[in-house]
Design a protein around this nucleic acid. Sequence first.
DNA 1: TTAATAGTGTCTTTAAGACATTATTAA
DNA 2: TTAATAATGTCTTAAAGACACTATTAA
Lengths: 295, 295
Amino acid sequence: MSEADATQQEYPVLRGLPVDMCIFTVATESRKTPQDNIDKRTLKSYPDKHLELLLVKRISDTEGDKWALPGGFTKIETETIDAAAIRELKEETNLDASVTQLRAKPVGDGIYLEQMKAYYKPGRDDRGPTPTVAYVALVHEALLANLHAGGDAGQARLFRVPENSAHPFVCHTENGTTTVDWSELAFDHAEIISDALKFVQNQILTTTIAADLLPKEFTIAELHQVISAVVPSYGQMTTNFARDLLKTKTRNSMLKEALDEHGELKKSSQYSARPAQLYRFNEEYEPWLSIYPRP
Amino acid sequence: MSEADATQQEYPVLRGLPVDMCIFTVATESRKTPQDNIDKRTLKSYPDKHLELLLVKRISDTEGDKWALPGGFTKIETETIDAAAIRELKEETNLDASVTQLRAKPVGDGIYLEQMKAYYKPGRDDRGPTPTVAYVALVHEALLANLHAGGDAGQARLFRVPENSAHPFVCHTENGTTTVDWSELAFDHAEIISDALKFVQNQILTTTIAADLLPKEFTIAELHQVISAVVPSYGQMTTNFARDLLKTKTRNSMLKEALDEHGELKKSSQYSARPAQLYRFNEEYEPWLSIYPRP
DNA sequence: TTAATAGTGTCTTTAAGACATTATTAA
DNA sequence: TTAATAATGTCTTAAAGACACTATTAA
């Protein structure tokens, strides 16, 4: 301790680095029920999917009881920053999955986690502990069934992410609806969330992290639905979307047809009358992305 | 100070955030001279271009006199982290240009600067001040003519970046040649530089930051040369490269033909017998990048 | 003239897009 | 049967790639 103090003259020393977690999921709307007075055949229609973000309600501190991103501090002298992010992800989501490393590349087991950006502004009083390193996680909704609030937070809830900043974050529960406007978020979390949203939108379009939001085997329509949930401006599913995805030379190694134990094509009737072909991501696929012509 | 100490119990407080700068440039080999005993016509051939990185030699500290990335600390209570990066960029390069903001998007005036990643590992003794936030800059070589070492560093030099980690960084001067192996770099700077290299390679292929390494108006061959300098595996310049760049629908707004005051096409004979058409980047161009079919 | 680089013509293959048609299933 | 979604066929246009050819200049 005295050694650290002595060092402070030469260069400032950090005593534990804050981490903020942007934990997103793509939630599936509950299926239509017969009570909805709809032709029973409509029951097979795809449930809607939309993007949700985990927020926690702070218990009285400098930022009052505002909703905020979950977060914490690295355990100085024992943790890397990535390890702290993994620990926070587990704590905040009550995940029992064995997350032991960053998942910047999708592994298809439901968790993507990557560092996004470091934030720092002078004047701690304005926005709480500075700096902070923001991490972005995309987690399969099935893994978020047992949320609990960790650390210094009151409640943890998944909020639907609005398509533009004129609309609030919304959370429906049996006890009613909670809405949180962008301006009501603690610290500079509105800025961080805005950056994180652009980040996941870019990532889902340029990498195969959609794999972490889908079952191991999925239909093209389900894949399209996940993309559209994260990027609302993405177009409608068309018959050509599927064909372009499968037949073009630069993409034809991206998905593989799912086969059953007899080597037969596996199909799913979960959401459609006519069974749809199931696919899985090919882990060997490496996207080529460039604005310049391929050399 | 005592107020800060009191706060430490609740959450650790940072007392100035370190910043490491990965300052790259694309250097132009000195032109062939007649003494090289080459047919004079060869003089017009393009000079080679290659990627260079600014390193500084530390003066005796915990890391001895190793070569390292230039860096510094945010001025706590007055600077944002971005402001510190801008200040360090100016100090280390002796730039007199009025850099007042991050240039994540190219502005074509010779400077691209963007935050890459935050690093943190426990155990300060192993690698000096932790954490650190690494910034990546790509600067036009003309702006790096007046290098001087800033702060606690001895010398500042531009080193040629090797194409793989089996080879060292090399710097030629009148006084001889300096080579620095990856393993000889201070702290964990080899890891940071490795990440930064992938980062700039990805950025130059997916954004228009090449504009910052070129004159306002340039030929297609010069553009290709810059890309190849940063991404050595990029292919040879072909006649189809130019045509694909200019004629395809998704890219045809990327470059605009340069016109003189009479509205005539501007051409350059600087590097070729037959004059080549000059182009400039279209600032309105927004690349579309996705592994999925365009909606 | 020749060397060197810039740029065009033309043909082939592949990808993208429009849109009609057929297929498969549950109720 | 009908509704709903999956998948194919076919035709058109655009992009990519191969490669021979022409153009412009300096020395």
